[in-house]
Simulated assay, not measured.
Amino acid sequence: WSYRTRAQGATALHRIGRLYRSRGRLEAALNHLTEAMKLYEAVGDTRGWAGVCDDMGRAYWLAGSLRDGLRLLHKAAQLRERDGDRTGLATTLTNLGILSMTGGSLERAKAYLERGVSLRREGRSPHGLLESLNALGALLLTSGEQEAAVAAMEEAYELSKRVGNRRMQGMLQNNLGETLIKSARLNEGETLLYKAVESAGRLGDHNLLSDASRNLAIAARQRNDRDRALKWAKRAVAAAQESDITRVRATAMTTLADVLSDEDDHDAANHAFTRAAQLWVDANDRSGLSETLQAHAAFHMRLGDTKAADELLARHEQLLRKRKTAEIPKSE
């Protein structure tokens, strides 16, 4: 191939890979992105190389490989720092924050995300700022800083409406709705979540539909409306079956298990908890697995099965020790 042909080929493969990733077809995405990376490296296109490392990092994480995802993102950060690409670096820092958060390293995640938001504010990309604020809001919610989380997501949601980014608007309807529910603002949260369900239908986004349905199940459970909680939890699981992203399926199944644990069908709840735990293992997500084990143990405790509860709690404690000692690789 000539230089021009290889450069064009890299761009085309990168574009197709990103499209596959957005649709949750991760194996096809990684195949195309890997070929694009080889061509970018061959022609010396540093920005293209960094960009494809970013996209591959997210794809590997979605496929359940946190370590590979972080390795590629650190490579992207190194390339962008060397190239002086502050706009691209903001993207990489946002991705590093998201992956570090799921790996349980919340302080490091916050540092990445706050720097990412700062760089976005310096630039002229409102779409990029949307993604960084959304990620920061999720981190703040996970850290228990609910007011700050609501503020970040409300800013992002208003911005998404101004710029007409329908994909991010739907995502933020869901994420802000979830944050409001966890802040005991149920009516406002549910209103946004119903909008997110409508957005998911227009966009054909199974991942968004699953997560918005899951959050509506959580809201119904808070209202002690068991029938509605079960309806939305089952809808979340059904939508998640259309996704190739294990984490989406794990999250939906965990919510169904929580809802079933309120019912009299103990076998169904136990099966759902066991299935959810296996999905978290497949997703390589210790945080999700830890929370599911705690909920499963509480379920057994309510049934009077202290032996099963103790076994699950012991496994949970073991995971906590691993999370405290596990070191997420730092950028060189």
Rank of each mutant, 00 (worst) to 15 (best):
Y3Q: 11
G9E: 06
H14V: 03
H14Q: 15
R21H: 13
R23V: 02
R23G: 09
G24Y: 10
L26E: 00
E27N: 12
H32Q: 15
E35R: 15
K38D: 05
G44K: 06
R47I: 05
M56Y: 06
A59E: 01
L66S: 12
D68A: 14
L73F: 08
A76S: 09
Q78F: 15
L89N: 01
S105F: 13
L106Q: 07
E107D: 04
R108T: 02
K110Q: 09
K110P: 02
A111E: 10
L113N: 07
V117W: 02
S118P: 00
L119F: 08
H127S: 05
N134M: 04
A138R: 12
L139T: 04
L141H: 15
S143V: 03
Q146G: 03
E154G: 12
L159P: 07
L159W: 15
G164K: 09
R167G: 01
G170S: 03
E178I: 01
T179A: 10
T191S: 13
Y194G: 02
R202F: 07
H206L: 00
L208R: 14
L216N: 04
A219F: 12
R221C: 11
A229E: 06
K231I: 02
K231G: 09
Q241Y: 09
I245Y: 01
R247V: 05
M253W: 04
M253N: 07
L260M: 05
E263F: 02
D265C: 12
A268T: 10
A268K: 02
N270M: 06
R275Q: 03
L279R: 12
W280D: 00
A283L: 11
A283Y: 09
N284C: 07
G288Y: 07
L289H: 07
H296Q: 12
H300Q: 02
M301V: 11
A309Y: 15
D310F: 15
E311T: 10
H316F: 08
E317C: 01
K322N: 07
R323E: 00
K324A: 04
T325L: 09
E327G: 11
S331W: 15
E332G: 13
